[in-house]
């Protein structure tokens, strides 16, 4: 892959809140910050819970597979449509077969617990870029309806 691969680049530098992810305590911190941001943006309790859940899973993947990374939480507004954007970025081992990782059941079998298909179901938009030896970036979004 080319050098400008998004997985190599640091996540969007603008106005988001960055949370370092290294330990299980950081997972709790990240999801609590995400919930607070969603609530502050006017998302209802049900959607805020979903956002919090997705962050927890993404942060967990970082701790489990990459050891360290970061999560960026960002409120966005395009033409009056409001969304919360979450980018999980690490420079860990990467995922060899992204297609396989996105299949339901792949995570649970073998106890890997990637949970990516679940996160995709929870959110409205889901993008993943991963390269073996270089790292993984997952970007997800929830629109406010």
């Amino acid at each position: 892959m080319a050098d400008d691969d998004p997985a190599r680049k640091p996540p969007a530098a603008s106005n988001g809140t960055r949370v370092k992810i290294e330990t299980d305590v950081d997972i709790v911190t990240a999801r609590q910050m995400g919930r607070a941001l969603a609530a502050q943006m006017g998302f209802g309790p049900s959607v805020s819970t979903v956002v919090s859940m997705a962050i927890s899973e993404l942060a967990r993947n970082i701790v489990s597979y990459a050891k360290r990374g970061e999560i960026v939480l960002k409120p966005t507004n395009s033409n009056g449509r409001v969304s919360i954007e979450i980018v999980a970025h690490d420079e860990g081992p990467g995922i060899a077969n992204v297609t396989q990782a996105m299949q339901d059941g792949f995570s649970t079998s073998g106890g890997l617990g990637l949970g990516l298909p679940g996160v995709k179901r929870l959110m409205d938009e889901f993008e993943i870029v991963s390269e073996v030896g270089r790292g993984t970036t997952v970007k997800v979004r929830k629109w406010k309806t």
């Binding site: 819970t49 859940m53 899973e57 339901d104 679940g118 179901r121 929870l122």
Partner: peptide, 12 residues
């Protein structure tokens, strides 16, 4: 309720 709903959406 909200926790339960998010759990089943994730597949738990």
């Amino acid at each position: 309720p909200d926790v339960a709903f998010s759990m089943v959406q994730l597949g738990l």
